[in-house]
Design a protein around this nucleic acid. Structure first.
Lengths: 187, 187
DNA sequence: TAGTTATTTTGATTTTAGTCAATGCTTAAG
DNA sequence: CTTAAGCATTGACTAAAATCAAAATAACTA
């Protein structure tokens, strides 16, 4: 558990006991390219940590596949809405390349929170980080041209451009495939 | 402390002791229309709870005022980025009408988290709720026309339409003032 | 490898929303 | 009450990006 280990260690004041309890509840699992971690309509029971690889969250509206986010190695991912509310997910999550993950059950995580407040504390800190990143994303997309949104992505998360298809990136950046293709051709 | 009280009470397993400790750290404060809760460039030291009234978060880019979010009564608001990272805020928060708020200092909140894990637990649940709302907002803005984005707002947060100006709503919905005006005229 | 399918690029056209400019409406101040 | 000042609406025009359609690449499969 190379980098999952490091996650908790990064945060101070977490006892060794808590770290081992946390790690022991994670199950390693490998996904092939195209395999689904989460499905629309089902309640999300797992929080995933991507050790290696990449995933994409998306939903279908009017038969169109719209990318919500990309998750890379070292990141957590789940259908947050469903994981938190325990209602059916509106999104799919798929691996866009072969990925080594670890996952923890919702109920195990809740139990850990009760038993080790330090784990809930760390989780809160991580959640804050993700919240801020989401806010930033919302801001960046505002009042920027198609080209600027693409340049922004190159700047901030260049790996996505290598790993995802034009169509996946286009819907993520809220533009048509054709527009993205033209933007790319003019560097 | 009418509705702030109710916040913690809504969540189970919070001791009376924790509730009083929590409430005692909040300071009541009234803002006039146009007064600033947070300023760009300064580190955000407070988390605000809006008892009555409404606030708007915005930033300035290229001399343009761009609305990030609106906060209504019963909601918490702060410059999350700054509050969490302790770095200078990139955003302003202003009241768009006379508002009765309560606020708690960053350091007091952190101390409460250490002393009462139940408070951090409740905070985590609230944060998750806000995270989901943000995700939802990001989804709604994608691949919707100017008209649909406006209808969405009427549907979900009609109060904002009464309380905010056309310019404030337009930048929030990522469209020009003129476009919003035209959308409104065609119902 | 050839053939098939999917993905990406390019071109022509249409649609949507932005900008600029003028006018109308409200509100606040003298 | 009248006059500004700011805010909101409307119109004409422009720019950006979407859609439709076709061609070119790339990727998969028999």
């Amino acid at each position: 558990m190379a980098s999952l280990e490091r996650i908790l260690e990064t945060f101070p004041n977490v006892s060794n006991e808590a770290v081992s309890a946390f790690e022991s509840k994670f199950e390693p699992i490998t996904f092939q390219k195209g395999e689904l971690l989460e499905k629309e309509g089902q309640v999300s029971n797992h929080l995933y940590f991507i050790e290696e690889g990449a995933a994409r969250s998306y939903y279908i509206r009017e038969k169109r596949d719209i990318t919500i986010s990309f998750s890379l190695e070292g990141e957590f991912v789940t259908s947050m809405y469903s994981f938190v509310t325990r209602k059916p997910s509106y999104e799919f999550i798929e691996c866009i390349e072969k990925s080594q993950c670890h996952r923890i059950l919702h109920e195990d995580l809740q139990r850990l929170f009760l038993e080790f407040p330090e784990i809930e504390h760390t989780y809160r800190l991580i959640l804050e980080k993700y919240y801020i990143a989401l806010e930033e994303q919302l801001m960046f997309t505002k009042f920027k041209s198609a080209k600027d949104r693409y340049l922004e992505l190159i700047e901030n998360r260049p790996k996505i451009i290598q790993k995802a298809s034009v169509g996946q990136i286009a819907s993520y950046l809220d533009m048509s495939i054709e527009t993205l293709s033209r933007v790319r051709s003019k560097i």
